[in-house]
């Protein structure tokens, strides 16, 4: 199959170019941007808090299920409920979820 198109002949050659001295200027530009900012501190894992939040979420889920069970077949989950649930999270957990969302390469595809 590769008789017609030899990957080995081309290797890693690319037609792309960059302006002269580009990589040095890139490094300088980024350093100018970050030199006065301090890196975010490591996020501490508060296992007890997470367990508590998990348990609370399960309990809340069961309560909601019991209350809304009769309506479930008639009504789809509204986006505002998702927003409300998100708003109910602590700032730390909201930041964590946003991080996960941003880190997931294809979540928005």
């Amino acid at each position: 199959m590769e008789k017609d198109f030899d990957f080995n002949r081309i290797g890693k050659r690319m037609p792309y170019k960059t302006p002269d001295n580009f990589f040095n200027e890139l490094e300088t530009g980024i350093w100018e941007k970050v030199r006065d900012t301090s890196p975010e501190p490591a996020r501490r894992k508060n296992i007890r808090l997470r367990l508590l939040l998990g348990a609370a979420a399960v309990a809340a889920g069961i309560s909601l299920l019991l209350v809304f069970l009769p309506f479930i077949r008639e009504r789809h989950t509204d986006f505002s409920e998702v927003e409300q649930a998100f708003a109910n999270l602590s700032e730390e957990d909201q930041a964590y979820m946003l991080d996960v969302y941003r880190e997931d390469v294809f979540i928005n595809e």
């Binding site: 170019k17 580009f22 530009g29 970050v34 890196p39 975010e40």
Partner: peptide
Amino acid sequence: LHADAQDASQETFVRIFRSFRQ
């Protein structure tokens, strides 16, 4: 596009620098 690659590379390193402790 080179200009887009430049922007995205900058953003990448700013994010890495700010969050490497994570």
